[in-house]
Design a binder for these strands. Structure first.
Lengths: 206, 206, 206, 206
DNA sequence: AATGAATGAGATTTCATTCAT
DNA sequence: AATGAATGAAATCTCATTCAT
């Protein structure tokens, strides 16, 4: 890898391989769980020797880090316009829930994989990173949305951190569990149910 | 272990050892994460050789299974009277959330450990058991409560499975994340905030 | 290994195994060189699985460290009485050279192995330890002997560090090379030749 | 490489590349030790891909062999006129020691590197070459000088192989160790000390 | 002449599990 | 009932080497 690793300056082919490897890692993790996602398994899935992974990523940690980075970027790009399109806080909340469901339908494995990594993966220090970075990604955004809604009088007075946390859980936990329990679940209507619940829980006038 | 394992017929000492080992596993998992909870580490914590664990449990899977069984039983015993004490659906929902917070304060490590196991552990088939048994434990109970509330006209018409799922997530995910982010968080008031949200989201008349 | 590693408190059997493993490592290194002395190779020589080595030593570094420690202690125990028996500086110098030759005949592999480790081994920091500790072991002793000889007027005025260095080299390098070139070399007479040279090079009156 | 490798018939550019690669190998080995001198590292130092090294040298063994050959040739060219300039055996001995010190000051890395290779490198058979070729290079020359000195009556009767070995060690071991211990050591005066010692140890009349 | 990419062999280390005592 | 000792499978990572371009 040598100099390439240091940010920027990567071949087209290299980018393609990295993307392919990340995708295979995503698939293996989503289908078989983090514990089974060994270098050998990922390599087998990609049809390459496991040392090829070592060639393109400094170590397993970097691979997982890149996987998470990719997933978060994809998710954010997916969600942002949908949030921006809604003028009201209620609209944004609904868009967050339904948009996440839509994302989850489109990028199922990626959504599952990033959660697996978040819960099972270890940081560089060897300690579990347990959802530290990835899952908290959108919390600041959510808190701002909720806060603005309270200021404008659209939403009632509640603890924004609690509600933001519940919103995150609804998306990264509730829906994921539902889909795991029944892969054929209709995420769309599931999300609408959740959105209704949040609308009632957050609106100002009872 | 010989014949003893097959349910029943365990010495008093045996039971004590098993309980001790489970407790040590709980502590190690809660403090250091599932990945670090090796047999050696658990044994060290218990002050015994790791082979003693193998002596009392068929394999690591059985240990984890028993850990989960214990935790679920404790949780259920803790929660049941609190639910029974509430005549209304709204009361039961509130009791579920606040009771869980109370449980989480009392049995912090157990609550954390069982989630770690649920997310990271592997089933007998080698596939991740991801929340299969443990997290779904109270879902039927919750669904019944919600359903009864709808029938009696106390609660509005929503999809009980969705709402039950969200309730489970609030307890096993939202609050846990909150505590991880800030170990000094006041779980009591956190739970009250959640309870309010659920009251608004589920009550019949707006 | 657990608690045992922490100094003291080792089983008899464990000590025996450690000694056996060290001895096998010595033999492999002396016969095939440091590069070939892999865990697998050492294990094979000892007739044990390579993981047994890991069981008794924290890592390869600790094994090498113990090997060097053992060798240095053996060498020192061998040499000390021979030095103490000589009252004069000249006698001690001669005893150092001839005693080392005798040691080398008795513990050939150990002498060779410790030099291999010194030159090829890596320290905990990953940098080569190149003879740092082991080879310098007796230099202070030599320097004191030479210094005392100068003070008493028995030896001429020379730089004691240079002469001590040359003495060390004669023993760890000249004789070793000679034996490698011809394994049947008579170390005894070889040492006597060296001793004569040093006597002439150090005595006071020409 | 095709046919070029077989001696002779190398482009000017080819020769330049080979020389550059050898020099970089020398520097890496001297500064970081043999174990760290991987193809990748040497390539990085030279600013070329590691496959370029494979292109110019059959394998790592050939590179090291060429490195040693170059170093020995340089050393010999450096030393020869200094030896020839001295008519007496004593003068040649002194010139050998001081000349080597001068060489070591001028080509520090090369001197260090060739020793590293001699001690750590493996021969074509996979066995360590341990100083076989390189370190013995000048021993015949030294033995002849010593022998001639004895015949002419200038030097006393000693075993020329032993004394030649000690002379080699003084240069390849004693001085190297001294410089490693203290990089600022004054090699010139160090060499003069050694020369005096050898003069006393070898001259005929006490 | 040069190189990026790929590869496979091999080294170290971890860990659940087994076994004789 | 307990344990120290041993084991083998598996995982990660390194490195010299090869090959198509």
């Amino acid at each position: 890898m040598s100099a390439n690793n240091e940010r920027g300056g990567r071949t087209f082919i290299e980018e393609a391989r990295r993307a392919q490897i990340i995708q295979c890692a995503v698939d293996v993790i989503a289908e078989s769980g983090y514990a089974r996602a060994t270098m050998a398994e990922i390599g087998k899935r990609a049809g390459i020797a496991k040392s090829v992974i070592s060639y393109h990523f400094a170590d397993k940690g970097e691979l997982m880090q890149e996987l998470v980075r990719t997933a978060v970027a994809t998710y954010t790009q997916f969600l942002e316009p949908r949030l921006a399109a809604q003028p009201t806080a209620a609209g944004k909340i609904c868009a967050y829930v339904t948009g996440s469901a839509e994302y989850m339908s489109t990028y199922t494995n990626m959504h599952l994989a990033v959660l697996e990594v978040a819960f099972n993966g270890l940081g560089p220090d060897g300690r579990p990173l347990t959802a530290s970075i990835p899952l908290e990604t959108h919390k600041p955004t959510l808190e701002r949305i909720l806060h603005d809604g309270q200021v404008s009088g659209e939403l009632r007075q509640f603890d924004v951190r609690v509600m933001a946390g519940l919103l995150r859980s609804a998306v990264t936990h509730t829906m994921v569990m539902a889909q795991r329990a029944d892969p054929d679940v209709d995420l769309d209507s599931y999300a609408r149910e959740l959105a209704t619940a949040f609308a009632l829980a957050t609106r100002d006038r009872p």
